[in-house]
Structures are given as structure tokens and as C-alpha cells.
Amino acid sequence: MSDPHGPAGPGCREVFELLSDYVDGELSPETREALEGHLGACPPCERFLKTFQKTRALCRESLLEEMPDELRTRLRSFLKDRIRGK
């Protein structure tokens, strides 16, 4: 395992700053490779990445709520009244 904190690649702080671009697939191939080199050699950063990705998945799952039918009905009825009565 190479030294992830050597002068050649990104340091931990830089890796943290790039995590969103990394998970969104927005890094250049060179930067992505350098970042993955760091992650492969730096267990704390790799663990941080896993929890960073997990957070997004958990948030989406919790917040992806369907609109309840009762509210849909209320919305439709509100708009029908207001639009007809304009």
C-alpha cells in the first residue's frame, strides 16, 4: 500500500472537498484516478466515503414520500374552485 499522504497525490482534506464531485461522476479521469489512489491507501478516508454515500441513500429513502391521496384530492378540489371562480 503506497503512502496516501505523500506529496504526489491529493491529501485527506482535498479528498473530502472532492467527494461530491466524485460521487456525482464530475471529476476528470486524472483527478478521479488520483483520488481513488488515495482512497485505496487511506482507510479513514475510505470509511468516510462509505458513510457519505450511505447518507445520501438514507436521506433519499426517508424523504422520497409520495403525496397522500387525501392531499391530492384537496389540491384538485382547491384548484377547481379557484379556477372556476376566477
Binding site: H5, C12, V15, P44, F48, K50, K54
Partner: peptide, 21 residues
């Protein structure tokens, strides 16, 4: 909001970061 993730001496990510995923 990432200061507590780093060792103040080395500046590296702390070994104590856990994977709770």
C-alpha cells in the same frame, strides 16, 4: 463542517472515523 474529521497535528483524516454504513 469537517474539522473534527482531521487530526489537528498531522492534518490527516482521523483513524477514529468509523464506517457505520
Amino acid at each position: 463542517d469537517d474539522e473534527e474529521a482531521f487530526d489537528p497535528v498531522t492534518g490527516h483524516a482521523r483513524a477514529a472515523i468509523r464506517d457505520w454504513s
